[in-house]
Simulated assay, not measured.
Amino acid sequence: MPRARAIATRVGLDWFLVALLSMIGLAYLWPELGVDREPISLGDVANYGVSVIFFFYGLRLSPEKLKVGLSNWKLHVVVQLSTFILFPLLILPLHTLFEDTPQELLWLGVFYLAALPSTVSSSVVMVSIAGGNIPGAIFNASISSLLGIFITPLWMGIFLTSGTGNFDMGSVMGKLVLQVLLPVVLGILLHRFWGAFAERNKGRLRVFDQVIILLIVYTSFCESFARKMFSGYSITDVLLLGAAMIALFFLVYGLILTVSRLLGFSRDNQIAAVFCGSKKSLVHGTVMSKVLFPGGTMVGIILLPIMMYHALQLLASSIIAQAEARRKAGD
């Protein structure tokens, strides 16, 4: 039990998931605080927090480690194609099943999830537990996060432009450059000076990230509840969504594992590929939603699939990682 609790804490199965659910409940009971702009706009506070999150993310990126990881190109190609091509192509054809139904907005949330980059911390932790290629995991998770700044809005832009006609790609990219990319670049440039400080305090910085995410989730759901955006959905819809999310995880996991074996990957690289390629980032999902869906009224529904996938991917991958660790110990 202590070992399981320690692993759960390391990968994020702790107070944070409980707090996420609490923010939804609080938004349902008290949406006014997240909607009102006086005496202070919590939405504006969250916007500033987004830039700080990505500044510290860039501060912890080591250019030297990224250079070292460049050589294992087959692993990188599999992970990035899985993250940004396989996921969206699995979800995109399903739009015809939900078009012009109350569930279409939930589908959009799932498609947004599919377009997101991989996680960083939990991917590396899982690869470490399973005994996989840790440098490869660090490289792929980091590169995925950077690529997602550009690729995620491109995927969403194609769909939203064709579906609504009011998606301004130039405006969105401009906001992402100012709010996300610029802080990351600034952090990377200052890595040599403050990188060690950021690494020493990564625990505190993680808590800051989580607090900002909770604030974004709260304000997003406040907007949705205040405008009764969830009125057309039932408990059955939510349960089916959860089942679909865990099915999506195992489908992608199985496809990546099959491709890795066909390409002759070593066991270490297989582990890095399946854990990095099957994950999706709650951090990027929440913070980028502030830019991609500026209206705010439907963001709560858009974020629901990534929140569910986040929890379920951690549960499933932690079980798999521990099994891989036991298998390696028995070899």
Rank of each mutant, 00 (worst) to 15 (best):
F221L: 05
T236L: 14
Q210T: 03
G170S: 09
V252C: 03
L240D: 02
G170Q: 08
P102S: 08
S51N: 11
G170N: 03
A27N: 09
N166I: 11
M169K: 06
P305M: 00
G12I: 13
A316H: 00
V217K: 06
K328N: 01
E99W: 05
D331T: 04
L239Y: 05
L146D: 06
F98E: 09
P135R: 03
C276E: 15
L255E: 05
E38M: 10
L292R: 07
M169V: 12
S162A: 15
Y57R: 00
Q313M: 09
R37W: 06
R10K: 15
S162Y: 12
I158P: 00
G296C: 08
F197K: 09
L178F: 14
G242N: 09
S224L: 03
A323D: 00
E104S: 06
D100N: 15
F275M: 08
R206W: 00
E199S: 12
R326W: 01
Y48S: 12
L189G: 07
L178R: 12
W107H: 06
T152K: 02
C276K: 05
I302F: 03
I53P: 04
V79R: 04
R60S: 15
L257Y: 07
L240Q: 08
N47C: 06
D268W: 05
E64L: 12
T236Y: 15
L304S: 01
T119C: 01
N140S: 11
T258G: 04
H191A: 07
L205N: 05
V18A: 13
E38N: 07
